[in-house]
Design a protein around this nucleic acid. Structure first.
Lengths: 219, 219
DNA sequence: TCGATACGAGACAGACCCGTATCGAATAAA
DNA sequence: TTTATTCGATACGGGTCTGTCTCGTATCGA
């Protein structure tokens, strides 16, 4: 029998100290790589989260289903690991100014939207998150909340330095910038991300304001 | 047999001039209402689009499956009609000023986000759109593109009147406002829509700008 | 009245998928 | 060599859903 505890390969699940080098044949590292590579390949071929089946993944990876279920307790755990694994590292913010940091954050989002793999993750996350509550909560805690916090911190520094208005609503700033970028990435297929000046345009629009002379006069 | 052409009740499908009042028993209007009502009820009970099954809908409506398939050729066509049917009418814009029109548009979105039925539609659309390509394209053409156009038109008038900057990027304005609202509605559960001043805050933030004295000095 | 159609109910086939179990072969430690 | 574990492959049970079809009944035009 091999129906004992799983030893999941990566982030989420238990992975309890495999300190005891067990006796039998060791798990194949290549199998794991093949599984992740197969998921990635299926994704690139246009599959959604719902189209990914354990059987399909196993076949694409040239792997038996048991090899998957020996590592993950169920489909959702596998997909959580697969998605988390695709996350790219956060950008290092230069800190030269709050405006510059916001621009760099948006530039990071823009590049993610241009990268096919990252784009797929975003699309999947936003379009099918509901069906996998575990994946949803993990992604929220690990990615979304963290990035919101980054923007909030930047905004706080900007307020302290006088770059931003003293009465700035931190969440509002984050929402307008992130929202605009997400709309382009996830929602509207015809709003391109190609323009490298996009982050600068967005941040400066929000900082300088879009009101014209009539609006300034009316204040 | 009654496997002839369907006569779908509402928007999407063919509905070809039922000019010939056919001979047998007429279709029950009550059945259609019951079907739509059942979908709505299931939605309110928390079901996602993927949880809606023809069998479940039929049972909840007290209707036979054949009664559904007599009207719609498949599940997707039914759901398209059901979602389109839930769309609330566009708001009448007062036109007193471009700023006011933007505020009214956002206020409409805010109210939609607070209404449970509309919120469900939005969540479903954004989280599960991929799996129903027909629904996706219908919703894009009927709703999303139209609303984008409304904001673009308002922005154009604002530029003409001098309320907005002459070099305004119309799409950028729409994206930042709509994106911010959508983020609150669909994405972040903890950003409430309760504040009635939200639309004013957002529009004025974007028009007046969020930059502080240091930013103004640096320009 | 009679034929045609719709009704609710449900059986049915076909497909799909998950998660488990089993197979012989392979690969490690003891 | 022996024992334990993994490997890929595949069969299996159990479940779900779609879409078609068949009941007996109800309601219409002719």
């Amino acid at each position: 029998m091999d129906t004992d505890r799983q030893t999941p390969p990566s982030a989420l699940a238990v992975e309890p100290h495999c300190a005891a080098p067990r006796r039998g044949r060791p798990r194949s590292e290549a199998a794991e790589q093949a599984i992740f590579a197969a998921i990635e390949r299926l994704m690139m071929e246009g599959a959604g989260l719902g189209d990914l089946t354990i059987e399909g993944i196993a076949q694409a990876a040239g792997v038996g289903k048991a090899t998957i279920y020996r590592r993950w307790p169920n489909k959702e755990a596998l997909l959580v690991d697969a998605v988390v694994r695709l996350e790219t590292p956060e950008p290092e913010l230069s800190g030269s100014s709050a405006r510059q940091d916001l621009i760099e954050t948006l530039e990071y989002m823009r590049r993610r939207g241009l990268d096919k793999r990252s784009r797929w993750v975003l699309m999947v996350i936003f379009h099918q998150l509901h069906s996998l509550p575990e994946l949803k909560s993990v992604y929220y805690d690990r990615v979304i909340q963290r990035r919101r916090q980054v923007i909030r911190d930047v905004a706080r520094r900007g307020v302290a330095s006088g770059e931003f208005r003293a009465d700035l609503d931190l969440d509002l700033l984050a929402e307008m910038l992130v929202g605009a970028m997400l709309v382009r990435t996830v929602l509207w297929d015809d709003s391109p991300l190609d323009d490298p000046a996009l982050p600068v345009t967005m941040v400066d629009a929000l900082l300088s304001g879009l009101g014209g002379p009539a609006h300034a006069a009316a204040r």
